[in-house]
C-alpha cells in the first residue's frame, strides 16, 4: 500500500519583500529581487507555495575590514582596501545578486566618518554597482541615528533594506525607511517575544509589516545555531498560523557569526565550510536572505539552494 503523506494546510503566509527599484519604479537598480512570500514551512513544497528561493547578499564595508581573518580578506585581493572596487568585484567577478553594505567606518572606534561622507559613499556605491542594496549601520546607536537618515536619503527610491532597528532604538530608522521608501530590518536578541513586540512598535509608527524584515540574531554552527533555529521555527509556525505580526521574511547575518569562531579562523577551508554549513542549516529554518562573506562559501550555498529547489519534489 502506498504511504500517504500527511500534508498541513496553513491559513497564513509570510509577506513578500521586494529589494531594489528599477528605472521604471523610480530607482536605478538593474533588477528587483523578491524574498519571502512562502505559505509553507521551508522546503515543504507540497504544503503551500514557496515562490522565492533564499537569496545571498555579499557583505561589504565602507572601509577595509579590520577584524576579518587574513585569508578571508585575501579572497578579495587588493580590492578589499578600496570599498567601491571591492563591491564592484563582488558584482562583476563573483556575480553577486545583492550587496549588504555595513557602514562600519562611521563607528567612533573605526574611523568615525561623518554624515556627509557616509551619504556620499552610498551615492558613489549606487553609481558604481547596479544590484539592490541592504544598508546597515555601524552598531553604534548614537552614531547610527546621525548617519543613517542621510544614508537612507542618499538611496531614496532605490527600495533598499536598511537596518538594524532594535527595541531601544528603532524610531529614527523607521522614520527614514518610511520617508525614503525602504524596508527595515528589525533585530531582536534571539528572543521571539521581543521580535514580536518590536514589529508591533515599528508598525505603530506607520511602517507596514510587509516592509519589515526580521533579524532573529543567529549563532554560528557550534555557537547557538539551534537556539536561532528554534526561534525562527516558532516565529514561522506562528506566521503560517495567521499571526501577521510575525509574518515577516528573515535576514540572517551568517558571515559575521561564522567568521568569529575559532574553528573558522583556524583554517580557511574550515572557515568556508563553517560559513556554508551555518547558512545551509538556517535555510532549513526559514532564512530568506543570507548575508555572507567568503565567495567560495557563497558559491557552495548557492549550489545547495539550486539542488534543493530543482530536485524532484516529494
Amino acid at each position: 500500500m502506498e504511504t500517504q503523506l500527511v500534508l498541513e494546510k496553513w491559513p497564513g503566509a509570510v509577506s513578500t519583500v521586494s529589494i531594489g527599484a528599477k528605472k521604471e519604479e523610480g530607482g536605478t537598480r538593474s533588477c528587483s529581487i523578491k524574498i519571502g512570500g512562502e505559505s509553507a514551512l521551508p522546503l515543504l513544497f507540497k504544503e503551500g507555495s514557496i515562490p522565492n528561493k533564499p537569496k545571498i547578499a555579499f557583505e561589504v564595508w565602507d572601509i577595509a575590514p579590520c577584524d576579518w581573518p587574513e585569508e578571508l580578506l585575501a579572497a578579495y585581493g587588493e580590492e578589499i582596501n578600496d570599498p567601491l572596487a571591492w563591491a564592484d568585484k563582488c558584482v562583476n567577478k563573483y556575480k553577486a545578486e545583492l550587496l549588504c553594505v555595513k557602514m562600519q567606518g562611521a563607528h567612533p572606534d573605526f574611523g568615525n566618518k561623518g554624515t556627509g561622507e557616509s551619504a556620499k559613499f552610498i551615492s558613489r556605491l549606487l553609481s558604481r554597482v547596479n544590484v539592490p542594496l541592504v544598508i546597515i549601520g555601524s552598531d553604534d546607536d548614537t552614531k547610527d541615528n546621525l548617519i543613517m537618515p542621510a544614508v537612507s536619503e542618499a538611496a531614496k527610491k532605490e527600495r533598499c533594506i536598511i537596518g538594524c532597528a532594535v527595541q531601544d532604538n528603532y524610531k529614527t530608522l523607521a522614520a527614514s525607511a518610511l520617508a525614503d521608501g525602504h524596508s527595515l530590518i528589525a533585530q531582536s536578541p534571539i528572543d521571539i517575544n521581543i521580535a514580536k513586540q518590536l514589529n508591533i512598535l515599528i508598525s505603530d509608527m506607520g511602517l507596514a509589516f510587509e516592509r519589515i524584515v526580521m533579524d532573529p540574531t543567529i549563532g554560528a554552527l557550534g555557537y547557538g545555531l539551534e537556539y536561532a533555529y528554534s526561534i525562527m521555527e516558532r516565529a514561522r509556525l506562528a506566521a503560517l498560523s495567521g499571526d501577521k505580526t510575525l509574518a515577516c521574511a528573515f535576514i540572517c547575518f551568517i558571515g559575521q557569526e561564522a567568521w568569529k569562531t575559532k574553528e573558522a579562523k583556524s583554517s580557511i577551508e574550515q572557515g568556508i565550510v563553517w560559513e556554508a554549513v551555518t547558512a545551509s542549516s538556517l535555510i532549513q529554518a526559514g532564512a530568506d536572505l543570507l548575508v555572507m562573506r567568503h565567495p567560495k562559501a557563497i558559491e557552495k550555498v548557492n549550489n545547495f539552494i539550486e539542488i534543493l529547489y530543482s530536485t524532484p519534489r516529494l
Binding site: I192, N193, I194, A195, K196, Q197, I200, L201, S203, R234, A235, A238, G242, D243, K244, T245, L246
Partner: peptide, 15 residues
C-alpha cells in the same frame, strides 16, 4: 495559542 509580547492584546487585535 499565541506568542507573548508586551503588547499582546494589541497584537491579537492586529491579526
Amino acid at each position: 495559542k499565541n506568542i507573548y509580547c508586551d503588547s499582546y492584546l494589541e497584537a491579537y487585535r492586529k491579526k
